[in-house]
């Protein structure tokens, strides 16, 4: 029971962590050029293991555009229907850079702290005794 409860808490924490990083991840996918919605979703899934609910990403893209971080344009595609391409504005590039630097500093400092935890085998008997 204990391990199940911990497992659920761990999954919840991991979900919150992924959710918190989503905006940074979306901005990062557009760092190298313009992409349309489905390409952004696939990029998130392939490069970051962020299995994001599709219904979450499109509203965030709309907000980022409303905030002036993204620009968009409808482009005719070979598929037969136009696609809405997004790209970073100057302000969006600045925000992406700030977020990436903050993330980098934070993860590097935390990595030092968790290093001993990763090296040591967890003794299940000891955990049960606690």
């Amino acid at each position: 029971m204990r391990m199940n409860a911990n497992g659920e808490r761990g999954q919840h924490w991991e979900a919150q962590l992924r959710k918190g990083c989503l905006e940074m991840a979306i901005l990062s996918t557009l760092w190298n050029g313009r992409l349309y919605g489905l390409e952004i979703l696939r990029c998130l899934a392939d490069k970051s293991q962020l299995q994001v609910a599709e219904g979450t990403v499109y509203p965030i893209l709309s907000r980022l555009k409303a905030e002036g971080l993204l620009q968009s344009e409808w482009v005719e595609a070979e598929a037969g229907h136009p696609r809405k391409y997004y790209w970073l504005t100057l302000s969006g590039r600045r925000r992406a850079r700030e977020m990436a630097e903050a993330w980098n500093d934070f993860s590097a400092s935390l990595a030092v702290l968790v290093q001993p935890v990763l090296k040591r085998e967890i003794d299940d008997d000891q955990l049960d005794a606690d």
Binding site: Y36, A53, G55, Y58, H81
Partner: peptide
Amino acid sequence: ILREIRTHILDSLPDNPQAVIEPVLRALG
């Protein structure tokens, strides 16, 4: 919004015309 979601659905559908659409709509919520 409707135009973009329509595009997303069309892009997500497999080329096979017999493929079911439910998983695509379910993924959108």
